[in-house]
């Protein structure tokens, strides 16, 4: 299969089976430079599995993955780190690539955790650790960012600021982002392409297309139609870092 110019990773009818059970099957999607693709779906619908297929963590898959970059930043949903390792935030930032001190500082400042730089990784709170994970993923200036519920455990104002940061990074680095989020509101406003999963792709397309899709509506019910109305009444305000709402 040929590569369209900007494609970073492409799944062709990909699926993963373990002990005879499909974790997810028949996923086709592509992430391109500068584009945000979001996966939505209920718990256990195969979002994280799809991300791991795209990243090459799962190897014996059905279908195929074409990955065109090795500059990848990954924020996993669940991470088990052995806390007996003596490792500080600044060591963790260098985990997969050597990065200049000032770049590290910059990334940690962007996610608001520069003051934790010398702290031991094991002593961070859940939200702090999540911010460090995001800083680590963006600071290597990746071509492809895979974010699996990146703002879980982050406080409300931080959540908004971090989503804005993610959007900004996709623009400034011109990297492709595969985002997994439960926050339908964010998904519907800042995404180029949405894939709605439920063990398989139940619908996909622009946020508008998906929002109008009947399968999507049954899957998300009440919440979906509310979000849709929010989406349809054109955006007229932004949220500042402090969480206040400013009129445009």
């Amino acid at each position: 299969m040929s590569r369209e110019n900007n494609t970073l990773v492409k799944l062709n009818n990909a699926g993963f089976k373990q002990n005879g059970k499909w974790l997810v099957e028949g996923v086709t999607l592509a992430v391109e430079k500068g584009k945000i693709v979001t996966l939505i779906g209920p718990n256990g619908s195969g979002k994280s599995t799809t991300a791991k297929i795209a990243l090459g963590i799962y190897k014996n898959i059905e279908g195929s993955v074409e990955k065109y970059t090795n500059k990848v930043g990954y924020v996993p949903q669940k991470i088990s780190i052995d806390w007996t390792l003596p490792i500080r935030v600044q060591d963790f930032m260098l985990l997969t690539e050597n990065i200049k001190e000032e770049k590290i500082d910059e990334a940690l400042s962007l996610t608001g955790v520069i003051h934790l730089k010398n702290k031991s990784l094991g002593n961070l709170s859940g939200g702090e650790f999540q911010r460090v994970l995001i800083a680590r993923a963006i600071c290597k200036k990746p071509e492809l960012l895979v974010l699996d519920e990146p703002v879980q455990g982050v406080d409300y104002t931080g959540e908004i600021a971090l989503y804005e940061l993610i959007k900004k990074i996709s623009d400034s680095l011109h990297c492709g982002i595969l985002l997994i989020s439960h926050d339908l509101h964010t998904v519907m406003t800042a995404t180029d392409y949405v894939v709605c999963l439920n063990g398989h792709v139940c619908c996909s397309g622009s946020p508008m297309d998906v929002a109008r899709n009947n399968e999507y509506k049954t899957l998300f019910g009440e919440q979906a139609s509310k979000i849709l109305s929010v989406y349809e009444h054109k955006h007229d305000h932004v949220h500042s870092d402090e969480g206040e709402i400013k009129k445009n």
Binding site: K52, L55, G56, I57, N70, V72, G73, Y74, P76, I79, S80, I81, D82, L85, I87, F92, L95, T96, E97, K140, V146
Partner: peptide, 14 residues
């Protein structure tokens, strides 16, 4: 070292 800290991160990031 990276895979000692976390195997999946090391694998994902090549």
């Amino acid at each position: 070292f990276a895979s000692t800290v976390n195997y999946e991160l090391a694998e994902a990031e090549g």
